[in-house]
Amino acid sequence: MAKVLLEDIKRRFNNVTAIEEISFEIPDGEFWVLVGPSGCGKSTILRTIAGLETATSGNLFIGDRLVNNIPARARDVAMVFQNYALYPHMTVAENIAFGLKMRKINPKIIQERVVNVARSLSLDHLLDRKPKQLSGGQQQRVALGRAIAREPQVFLLDEPLSNLDAQLRDDTRAELKQLHQQLGITTIYVTHDQVEAMTLADKIVVLSGGRIQQIGEPQAIYARPANQMVATFLGNPPMNILPAIYKNDGFDVNGQLLEIPVFMRENLQLRQGQSVDLGIRPEHISINNDSISTENSGLLVEVKLVEPLGRETLIRVSLPNSSVLLNVQLGGNIRLHPGDRLALQLDLNQLFVFDPKTGERILPHN
């Protein structure tokens, strides 16, 4: 096991910049997740760590060793890809043992590792089967087992669950977390799925456009996103963004005034008439059942879509005469229909203010 350190890593393909000025350090034994939209550079970073890509500039350390010019086979890392890359003519046991045999490990040690790894992944009853006789989840566990058997310093996973169905993905995700707790191998995991990132990671690296947007613990990033991109990417449903204008000690949202609390006014440094983007998460919006009036802390809206999900109901609403839509997360026993008009109450203590030009967070300050 080992720490992983990236110092100002850049990767360019001709005139295209894939990653720019990437720097972070993953402590020994931690599970970090690189997350972001397609094309943000997360897989390029992983492949650079693995030695499958060469950094244009910058330094990469695994443990205390500078590995810039060390080939992939000598970096002591194991990588699991999106496609399982199992050998169809080999059994489960032979697939798990393949990397060890290529390294000419003692056959007795190979046998012990195969048995131990198979047991930890609940594959011990499948050792004589071939990949075509396995389910997708079982094949993925074989691919994991082949990597684990090598006992690498670093474990790299490139969207390993994306080919699984929803239930199997949830089950395998839980198995991965338990496996990491058992093995304690430094793990770097790439995904575009923010649910996987939130549930698996010790820390998340949020990427966009080849640059780091924010690094932190999942709940800390969710509670205090650095900018609008992070705020809308993490969270399901995503954070609502409302264009507004600051005036009269409040925010004008499509002609409706949100009168903001005194404590918030004291921290704002906005000029009258300044445009801002307001952010509020769906779970921080409720229905004002007392009155059709929003009392300057909410908005009048019309229901467009209702999605009952059992213990909760998601609704999509629109502001009058506007294309702006909001997602609202309510209790499961609510009964609403498209066309219903509602007065929504916003929890202004949970309101975010962003600069619409840069996307940076203006409020809260910390």
Score class of each variant (00 low, 15 high):
Tyr189Ala: 02
Val190Gly: 01
Thr191Val: 01
His192Ala: 05
His192Met: 03
His192Glu: 08
His192Thr: 05
His192Trp: 03
Asp193Gly: 04
Asp193Glu: 02
Asp193Trp: 04
Asp193Thr: 00
Gln194Val: 10
Val195Lys: 02
Glu196Gly: 04
Glu196Val: 01
Glu196His: 05
Ala197Val: 04
Met198Ile: 14
Met198Ala: 09
Thr199Leu: 00
Leu200His: 02
Leu200Arg: 00
Ala201Ser: 04
Lys203Trp: 06
Ile204Met: 08
Val205Asp: 05
Val205Gly: 05
Val205Gln: 06
Val205Met: 07
Val206Leu: 02
Leu207Asp: 01
Leu207Val: 00
Leu207Lys: 00
Leu207His: 00
Gly209His: 01
Gly209Met: 02
Gly210Gln: 06
Arg211Gly: 03
Arg211Pro: 04
Ile212Trp: 10
Gly216Asn: 11
Gly216Val: 11
Glu217Phe: 01
Glu217Ser: 02
Glu217Gln: 06
Gln219Val: 15
Ala220Pro: 12
Ala220Ile: 15
Tyr222Lys: 13
Ala223Arg: 15
Ala223Asn: 15
Ala223Ser: 14
Ala223Cys: 11
Pro225His: 11
Pro225Asn: 12
Ala226Arg: 08
Ala226His: 06
Gln228His: 09
Gln228Tyr: 07
Met229Tyr: 11
Met229Leu: 13
Val230His: 00
Val230Thr: 01
Ala231His: 09
Phe233Tyr: 09
Phe233Ile: 07
Phe233Ser: 03
Leu234Glu: 03
Leu234Ser: 04
Asn236Gln: 14
Asn236Glu: 14
Asn236Phe: 14
Pro237Met: 12
Pro238Tyr: 12
Pro238Gly: 12
Met239Asn: 01
Ile241Leu: 03
Ile241Arg: 01
Leu242Gly: 03
Leu242Ile: 04
Pro243Arg: 02
Pro243Cys: 00
Pro243Leu: 05
Ile245Ser: 12
Ile245Val: 15
Ile245Gly: 10
Ile245Pro: 10
Tyr246Asn: 09
Lys247His: 13
Lys247Ile: 10
Asn248Thr: 05
Asn248Trp: 00
Asn248Ile: 00
Asp249Tyr: 04
Gly250Asp: 12
Gly250Tyr: 13
Val253Thr: 08
Val253Glu: 08
Asn254Met: 08
Asn254Arg: 07
Asn254Gln: 11
Asn254Glu: 12
Gly255Tyr: 03
Gly255Lys: 04
Gln256Leu: 06
Gln256Val: 07
Leu257Glu: 12
Leu257Ile: 15
Leu257Gln: 15
Leu258Asn: 10
Leu258Thr: 10
Glu259Ser: 14
Ile260Phe: 12
Pro261Val: 13
Val262Tyr: 07
Phe263Asp: 14
Phe263Gly: 10
Phe263Ile: 13
Phe263Lys: 14
Arg265Val: 03
Glu266Cys: 04
Glu266Gln: 08
Asn267Asp: 14
Asn267Trp: 09
Asn267Met: 13
Leu268Ser: 06
Leu268Asn: 06
Gln269Ser: 14
Gln269Glu: 14
Leu270Gly: 09
Arg271Thr: 13
Arg271Cys: 10
Gln272Glu: 15
Gln272Gly: 08
